[in-house]
Design a protein around this nucleic acid. Sequence first.
DNA 1: ATGAAAGCGCTAACAC
DNA 2: GTGTTAGCGCTTTCAT
Lengths: 341, 341
Amino acid sequence: MRDVARAAGVSISTVANVLNNPAVVADATRTRVEEAMAAVGFVRSGPARQLRGLPSRLVGSVTLDQANPFYAELNRGIEDRLDEAGCLVLACSTDIQPDKELRILRLLEEQSPRGIIVTPTGENLEQFEAIARRGTPVVLLDAPRGALDLCAVAVDHVAGGRLAGEHLLGLGHRHIAFVSATWDVPPVRDRLEGLRRALGEAGAQMPVEVRMDQGDLYRGTEEAVLALLALDPSPSAVVCLNDVAALALVRALERRGLRVPADVSVVGYDDVPFAAHVQPALTTVRRPIRNLGRIAAELLLAESTPTHHHEEQVFRPKLVSRATTAPPSSLHSAASGRRPR
Amino acid sequence: MRDVARAAGVSISTVANVLNNPAVVADATRTRVEEAMAAVGFVRSGPARQLRGLPSRLVGSVTLDQANPFYAELNRGIEDRLDEAGCLVLACSTDIQPDKELRILRLLEEQSPRGIIVTPTGENLEQFEAIARRGTPVVLLDAPRGALDLCAVAVDHVAGGRLAGEHLLGLGHRHIAFVSATWDVPPVRDRLEGLRRALGEAGAQMPVEVRMDQGDLYRGTEEAVLALLALDPSPSAVVCLNDVAALALVRALERRGLRVPADVSVVGYDDVPFAAHVQPALTTVRRPIRNLGRIAAELLLAESTPTHHHEEQVFRPKLVSRATTAPPSSLHSAASGRRPR
DNA sequence: ATGAAAGCGCTAACAC
DNA sequence: GTGTTAGCGCTTTCAT
């Protein structure tokens, strides 16, 4: 700004005025200053403005893994809304490691961003309240607000799990397994809980949980399939924690000679973009991914309005029936205690 | 820092010393200051540090669309390398709109980030040199360095297109189409160019280009398939600009009763994570996506070393032969001028 | 309509 | 070992 002022032969505050209050500046002066800005290649300093207390244009988005199709899509929703407000997304992945999450949150907080949208890795949600108290608004994603003094956008995963269960029950399945991951996270536990409730209320057998190592998608799914087949009675259907796992599982099942859905039904979760385009197309529990992101960004932006009250938006997922589910094979329904080979 | 100093009964510079030069501070004082920091809930101000000229911890990543599996994966590679250096990624999408790209670049530059990694939407690469001249290092991704005074990580897409062509020629295909998008971007043009060269050298018929509207994946692919079928001779194989398009095309082909690869072969591009897991698994031209991101981040970080020289890293893609390609059906090879119904 | 001056939170060079 | 001070680029109040 000093350079611009000198080049235009005016004071620094006049330059400031053409920037922040152009109406107050004489037309001739303004033009001169604008030309000077172009000539000098002037770029306003965000950090300096922030130091003066103006709102930051940065928003943190902390997800479990931005490469995962679900979070990639979510971040895009966040970006779209923030872009409308002239803000930028800081995309971070925790890999479900609480210490990495902590480190990232600290780093983010140091940038004094406009706020942070976070998908927590664990149960310890107080740390987010602490961040908010220190002055950086936090909105929780995929975590219930509970008693917290924060905004949240949540999905009723218990209802989602129930939806998956009821769909399979309706098709006649009685032995249903749940494939989870080696790590644990409340949204996944809730899906299993919902499935449990659906099966319990129908008097069906409780779901067996098989954990799949997603670190090595290939070996992990092979082992999960073996574990599934080793069950007695072997399940006629399996609900997966998400679509990525479901797709991998379908392939592993097929490699072992089992047909989906003829021999085993599979239901995914999320309805990520590829779910409708794989073969067979995934039956899945849909949540409006991009919109989740938009709403989270919306709540975050609203935090800076004077009359703001914290708010929770809860989404109810829907079942999308496609081609990976069907009634159980005669083998399963005729002799449910028998294991097909 | 003032609050911390007061709480610890020391001066501000002592607080600064425990932060930046802890060795020089007496143990007792240091502990006292550290306790005060915890009590006050002290968070260092990034903006203030930057104002003092210290390196920023922010790096911009400007891609065509961060929700696209290719860029999601790329950003993860960038994030992984930056994380090691304590830096954060600002993930932006241009949607291939030059004006949006310009706006985002400006916004990014205002944050005075450590640098910007950009996948350009167009041919006008001088703007990036201008940004670099103004002090924000830029590394080009998926664009050739050319005569530019910038770092770049590029992929030899001409070689990639050629690979796809040679693979299909080797299987016996002579009539090959190329599916591009409604927009144009140099990396895609290069793939077509490579394909052209391969076919030309083999004396095969030049590829026909069919543009697919990716805005509406469903209708876009339907129309693309119709256009493909309307060709005379109808192609026995098609090369797609990327894996997302390839997957959609395979599905649309199947909906029209054509089998892949029995009736038509399809080759994708990129080898995104799902490519190996769809059915039939995509034959594709692979580039090391995550690594591309890592290297780009690496080059960017290296810009701040004193002895830095701009550098270009060129990657040569590889063909991954999977299940969407096979020799042409007898129909095609017997009567190449005839169109199957 | 334009300019002078203070201060945001921090760092670094220097004095004590 | 600890404190004093100047200044990074900007905004804003107040004077002219």
